[in-house]
Design a protein around this nucleic acid. Structure first.
Lengths: 335, 335
DNA sequence: CACCCTATTGATATCGTTGTCAAAGAACAT
DNA sequence: ATGTTCTTTGACAACGATATCAATAGGGTG
């Protein structure tokens, strides 16, 4: 038998409503009553029935994670972060895979939210870069929190990371190692992170008085294959760079593969740097110099501020920028 | 305004209960009535309120995925499979990370299921290997479906793969390439898959009249590091094998790193094979020869049979073994 | 002491479904 | 024509919480 509020109210000799007040932390309950109720709750092991709460209060206590990201380790980290933030808040997490290229994406998601009465969404790249998608959520009054948005609207809930600064300092690090001939592989053009990373790179290059060789700057899309292809092209050139900075680790791994196939040893013949510190970064040899974003913490914060907003805790509902960490490993050689 | 059953019943000029019958596909509704109701449902865009259904019928329409697996790509694949199976069934997916070593695991999970009124669990390795954990679920009458169980109880719901046969045929493939000096890295001793893979290896070796060199058989735990460590040990030996079969790709990648650090070229000096076809298998160079399990399909089936059981579809509630596929890539050299 | 104000509490309606059970009508056998 | 069974339908209660609003008690004020 499951324990209901009614059982608790009998045990504590108060009304049902008073029990409800206590478990919802409402104001204006006498301290003694509160204690009485709480001890009964504990004694009977009472847990509010989510369906009933949800039905009456029109809240589902469910957050949904929206994703369309081929990077499985990123997804797992995001999920894990949200999971931890949800713990002991009464909210839980539903995951929703989607296709960012689908023409029905907007209506599908609105339908999904309405069908399941989802309280709020957590939006990850590349969906977080789609302004019209987010605007559509706004116009349907759907609450959401964005991870890595392209524009940081102070009204909205988001978490971001300092991609520009991180790319700038990683580039500076490469330069400090004595490199002047540096290639760059851009990320997916639809991700705002791609541009931030590229801009950080360019500015560091310029501020150090170094010339860019356009032949060494290739467009990728964050996939291993795009890195590989970019590598093949670069190594076809007459002169090859001494170092390449790829906008993420998968592409750096692709570069490494194409280098090895060409007989080039990393870091002896070519230095390499990636971004993200995904598992692959230390599962290849030599391990990649890269930038680690606190993905789990970012995701946790995204969930936390969303929940705080639902609970009316304005002071905790603060968007935030997280700092990345430079991780120097063997793939970078000092010239 | 959301549309309720009441609105539909008015529109179709029938009772609320009749609408309920139609949307739940109950028997004994006249065909004409049914059509009338369905057209009203469509016209008004009615969607049953999950919370109300759940409250009244004591079902939550939620499945939970239980995992404690460091393999992020495996998790993502499982999740994606379940997700697809849930689509258009009215069920949705909640993910629950847990710690298989925790002493409170059993009670925590029972509590979780009761708190959220979860209808059923999908259990993944290594939890699926914990007999006492599964028995505890049984004794609490919690429904579940197991991916890769250690014992295949015909009463229970599970999906398995032919790990033994796959390891046998991968080993045969290595032998066909001319190798006789073959090492093996075992997986985590608590995973039943580890033993199946090892047994498949051993039997193929024996049936081909080859001797096992115990120095080349190392205990790993599926992690990159354990593969790396095993490699370091093996390459310390006086004589090294010409090929190594690692029980998963991460460990094979670890071996490869240790080989490269020792100056050994794969596959020139050492052939290598993994298992799982995880992303890393083709993100390193040379790409790994490995075995691909249809993880997504398996997970989808696990969800499907669980849902079929809830819906009383006995004929669709069938446990199943899935076949793996051998993928031969560059890491295997013909002697 | 009468008055008002605030803090605390409870009775009852309500959320949107499904479950129970009885009633009405159709079909068939006697 | 009558009784029996089966199909179809609907009225109403119930699930377990929260919302509304009224009732009561205690405290301060003039």
């Amino acid at each position: 038998m499951t324990v209901t509020i009614k059982d608790v109210s009998k045990d504590a000799a108060v009304s049902i409503k008073t029990v409800s007040r206590v478990i919802n932390n409402e104001a204006n309950v006498a301290e003694t009553t509160k204690e009485k109720v709480l001890s009964s709750v504990k004694k009977l092991g009472f847990k509010p029935n989510k369906s009933a709460q949800s039905l009456r209060s029109k809240k589902s206590y469910m957050l949904a994670l929206l994703y369309d990201n081929p990077n499985k380790s990123y997804l797992a980290d995001v999920q894990s972060g949200i999971f931890n933030a949800c713990k002991s808040t009464g909210y839980n997490l539903v995951v929703q895979e989607c296709d960012y290229k689908s023409s029905e994406l907007k209506t599908d998601i609105v339908k999904f939210v309405e069908d399941f009465r989802i309280d709020g969404l957590i939006v990850t790249p590349p969906l977080s870069d789609m302004e019209d998608f987010l605007q559509n959520l706004d116009s349907h009054e759907i609450e959401y929190s964005v991870i890595a948005p392209s524009t940081m609207n102070p009204e909205s809930l988001y978490v971001s990371s300092n991609d520009y600064e991180a790319a700038y300092s990683l580039t500076s690090e490469i330069i400090k190692h004595g490199h002047k001939d540096i290639g760059f592989i851009k990320g997916h053009p639809k991700h705002s992170a791609s541009h931030l990373r590229f801009n950080g790179f360019i500015d560091a290059i310029k501020n150090n008085g170094i010339e860019i060789n356009e032949d060494w700057v290739k467009q990728g899309n964050f996939s291993f294959k795009s890195g590989f292809d970019a590598g093949v092209e670069i190594f076809h050139s007459e002169k090859i760079p001494t170092a390449i900075f790829a906008s993420n680790d998968s592409m750096a791994a692709g570069i490494m593969k194409s280098a090895q196939m060409k007989g080039l040893q990393v870091p002896h013949d070519l230095s390499l740097a990636g971004f993200d510190d995904s598992p692959i970064a230390h599962q290849i040899w030599p391990a990649l110099t890269t930038v680690k974003q606190p993905v789990e913490k970012m995701a946790a914060h995204a969930a936390k501020i969303l929940i705080a907003k639902f609970d009316g805790l304005a002071e905790q509902t603060k968007s935030k920028e997280f700092k990345s960490e430079l991780i120097v490993r063997e793939s970078l050689k000092t010239l």
